[in-house]
Amino acid sequence: MSRRHHFHIDYLGHSISATVQTGHAPVLEVLVDGKETGYATTKGDRPLTVAVELPNDPPTTVSVRATPGPGVPRCLLLATADGEPQVMAPRLY
């Protein structure tokens, strides 16, 4: 049975949201400022990483890393600027 989990963080003035759909083939969708900018799928509970660009001048590349399982999914924002991973907060929709 698949289930959708939502995560969010504000970074450098941009809204970054991630949706992790668990199940047989987990899916990660990433939105920046409400626009879909990244998508990945895998099998099992393997971590997924999606690189996206923030529309700054010049554009800033960051990555969202999701761990779909086992247990409750988790998401991290991996920013290249400071190198410190930031936990994306779960959101209930």
Score class of each variant (00 low, 15 high):
36 E>T: 12
36 E>D: 11
37 T>A: 14
37 T>E: 10
38 G>H: 03
39 Y>P: 03
40 A>H: 01
40 A>W: 00
41 T>R: 06
41 T>Y: 05
41 T>F: 07
42 T>D: 02
42 T>E: 01
43 K>N: 09
44 G>V: 02
44 G>L: 06
45 D>M: 05
46 R>V: 04
46 R>C: 12
47 P>Y: 07
47 P>G: 12
48 L>Q: 10
49 T>N: 09
51 A>I: 04
51 A>V: 07
52 V>L: 04
54 L>A: 05
54 L>Y: 03
55 P>D: 07
55 P>A: 06
55 P>F: 06
55 P>M: 05
56 N>F: 05
57 D>L: 09
57 D>V: 14
57 D>K: 13
59 P>H: 10
59 P>C: 11
60 T>G: 06
60 T>K: 15
62 V>Y: 14
62 V>I: 15
63 S>H: 12
63 S>N: 13
64 V>S: 12
64 V>K: 02
64 V>I: 15
64 V>D: 09
65 R>E: 15
65 R>Y: 00
66 A>M: 05
66 A>F: 02
67 T>Q: 15
68 P>S: 07
68 P>D: 03
69 G>T: 05
69 G>W: 05
69 G>H: 08
69 G>F: 11
69 G>V: 04
69 G>M: 08
70 P>K: 10
71 G>Y: 09
71 G>D: 12
71 G>V: 15
71 G>M: 07
72 V>R: 09
73 P>G: 11
74 R>N: 06
74 R>L: 05
74 R>T: 13
75 C>S: 04
75 C>W: 00
